[in-house]
Amino acid sequence: MSKSKHIILEKLKSKIHHSELEKEISLATLNGWTKKDMTQILSDKLKLSKAEVFVMPNKELASWLNEELPKRKVKNILSGTSLAKEISQKLSSTIELVEYDNSYESFSKQLFNEIEASITRTVGAIADSGSIVLKPSADEPRLMSLVPNTHIALVEQSSIFENFGQIMSDQSWSLNMPSNALLISGPSKTADIEQVLAYGVHGPKELIVLILTP
């Protein structure tokens, strides 16, 4: 044990005389919202944080991308390998699909300087705070949702939860935390200059959430 650790712990232990306090957390009660309610609440809240939200059947994803990306002058889009397999055939040839299949070190220049947009999956969303939930992985690395100007996130309607506590307990997070988990609630923003809100300071300037129905 390091010397400092020993000293600090000894000092802290010296005052543990009172009976240990029981935590009294009143967990946010569930409202019993339907998926439809939650879809509505989630989109309203996300829109308040300046995210764009579209609800569509799963099978229309590729055609939405084919239509919207050219409109937004997005020429290339970064995707994880597994999602790329699903959509590459259906994507129009004018959009370049780039896979994040190398280590960051060999990819960083391209990632920072050339990639315009990214598309990632999510593990769900939280209606009451208007957040999408990501667990970046080997397939969809951490920086996909941070570096490109536009981040498109796919949320399965079935994976929208009422609150943060509910998604953590339903998905048993405490048993297996990924190296990184994220709640994202809008495009990057700041109010550091005279409390004036400005978007796109370090992360994406645009967050587009596509809620996919079966």
Binding site: K45, L48, S49, S129, G130, S131, M177, P178, S179, N180, A181, L182, L183, I184, S185, G186, P187, S188, K189, G203
Partner: peptide
């Protein structure tokens, strides 16, 4: 309501 990012790093 919530900040843009809640970043949970475990490794």
């Amino acid at each position: 309501e919530i900040t843009t990012y809640f970043n949970m790093i475990s490794s």
